[in-house]
Amino acid sequence: MLRYAGRRITAMIPALLVIIVLVFALLRMIPGDPAVFIGGENIGPEALQALRERLGLAAPLPQQFLDYLASLARFDLGRSLHTQLPVTSIIGNAITLTATIAITSTVLGLLISVPLGVVAAYSKSKGRNRGDGALMAVVMVLDNVPSFWLSLLLMLGLSYGLGLFPISGAVSWSDPGAMAARLALPVIVLAIGQVAALTRVTRSAVVETLGRDYVRTARAMGTPEPTILFRHALPNAALPIITMTGLSFGRLLAGTVIVEAIFSIPGIGTQLIQAITGRDYPVVQGLILVYALIFLTINVVTDVVYTRVDPRVRLA
């Protein structure tokens, strides 16, 4: 298992290199000079040149790239052009927030989708197509609700209307209760965004396993229906569900960027938007690298989880 994980992590290196090159090049193709953002529109040509030199933007691009690679090799992501704070500490502060939101909403999404999918599959297998149809119609509606619209709707209803959740204010771990209330809406919005895909996958996978011989055996041995569903059918349907959870986690990360902006949560999504707007090259580069690492790691984690669920899967 460890050897397998080690090999998979080594295999990430080429992908990461490509991403490093692409992001470095693309960023510098966007119009806009960081020095102008920092020095202001009215800065004189000499002062601008001095600022560029101080920020390390005066050297030829290949030189800048090599310097960047050299510092990356020392696990140094550089400093923000604007605040001079180390990029690692900017990311470190923001990522716990984003990770909390992403993981909580994935868990919540699974807690909603898996039972929904199992119930839909069960209705279908019992020929109760109306129950199945109704559930899937709800899921289809959820699938087509844009997350920004849902965010605004929930803010309007639950925050302004009922005053249940604060939508602004400090985001700090010192008061866990307030933190939970502050993060609740973004988590709900992102969880709902996952429900459609996960419910569909659960439903179709469970429908398939319910038709298998071993389910008939379980029934013939007098196994109660809930045990058949959750102990016999669901684990056999787990592989597609895990795959979809991994894929959907990727989409969810993209979703955090929008939702963090709407709920003004200083996660890595918000940092990314600010950094791009201010052409803060080191911060953007560092953040994209982190996103890429998360995506690649999720793939490995997904494969390792397979082996925990299905004894037939062996990592080679």
Binding site: H232, P235, P311
Partner: peptide, 30 residues
């Protein structure tokens, strides 16, 4: 009554046992 008063041996043992549940759990449960 199923499994206790009336039980069945199925045709294909390859597909009739649950692949993700250990033999112990499958025999012990009933």
């Amino acid at each position: 009554a199923r499994g206790r008063d009336i039980a069945m041996v199925f045709q294909d043992p390859g597909t009739s046992l649950n692949p993700v549940i250990s033999i112990e759990a499958q025999i012990v449960a009933p």
